[in-house]
């Protein structure tokens, strides 16, 4: 039952993406590329790009995208519900505990303990995306000479601009898109 699979997959993504934003990325990749054959790695890279460009949380954006690809609009709605269900239950429970006891030391301790692991997972997903950008494939090829120079240049400039001037990522993304059109047209 495809609807149930969507619901369950995105329920897990919602439940285990702790720390917000990019924390969901490796989980989404795991569920929709590795566990289920719903997206190719190229499509996954596309949805990360689209999610970055459009408003709203990455997890919700990908839930909608994957849901539509797999089972149309109802799929999108069900995947989104799956994604927010754990939040609804857990956040309200935490809020209750907070108003009751005014302390979340344990929760914060767990969060602190999780942080390095979350960063490690984002790092891993980031490495995959860099390989994707440079070689158009998920896994680093044996022959490294097929590297996409234009992508490397765009990546390097974007990275430099982000580190040095802390500009809004949206502008880097837009700039990278424009640079892509210009550079690939010339070459």
């Amino acid at each position: 039952m495809i609807y149930f699979e969507l619901l369950w997959s995105f329920f897990q993504i919602g439940l285990f993406s702790i720390g917000g934003g990019y924390a969901a990325m490796p989980l989404i990749q795991n569920q929709v590329v590795d566990v289920h054959p719903w997206l190719t790695m190229t499509q996954f890279a596309d949805i990360m790009t689209i999610a970055e460009m459009t408003p709203g949380p990455i997890a919700i954006n990908s839930a909608t995208f994957v849901g539509i690809q797999v089972a149309g609009i109802p799929g999108a709605i069900i995947a989104t519900i799956g994604c927010i269900l754990p939040s609804c239950m857990i956040v309200i429970t935490f809020a209750y505990i907070y108003y009751r006891f005014r302390g979340l030391k344990m929760v914060q301790g767990v969060l602190t303990g999780l942080r390095p692991a979350v960063v490690a997972m984002i790092t891993s997903a980031g490495i995959t995306l860099v390989i994707m950008a440079f070689y158009g494939e998920r896994i680093l090829p044996v022959d490294l000479s097929g590297i996409n120079i234009i992508s490397v240049i765009i990546f390097a400039v974007g990275f430099l601009v982000l580190r040095k001037w802390k500009v809004n990522p949206i502008y880097v993304m837009l700039g990278a898109g424009v640079a892509g059109v210009l550079l690939y047209s010339i070459v």
């Binding site: 890279a45 790009t49 970055e52 990546f155 990278a176 898109g177 640079a179 892509g180």
Partner: peptide, 17 residues
């Protein structure tokens, strides 16, 4: 072309993060 360029941009954003 734009998407290929933007993928490099996303990769940069994520490395920054």
């Amino acid at each position: 072309m734009a998407m290929t360029g933007m993928l490099a941009g996303v990769a940069a954003v994520i490395c920054d993060v």
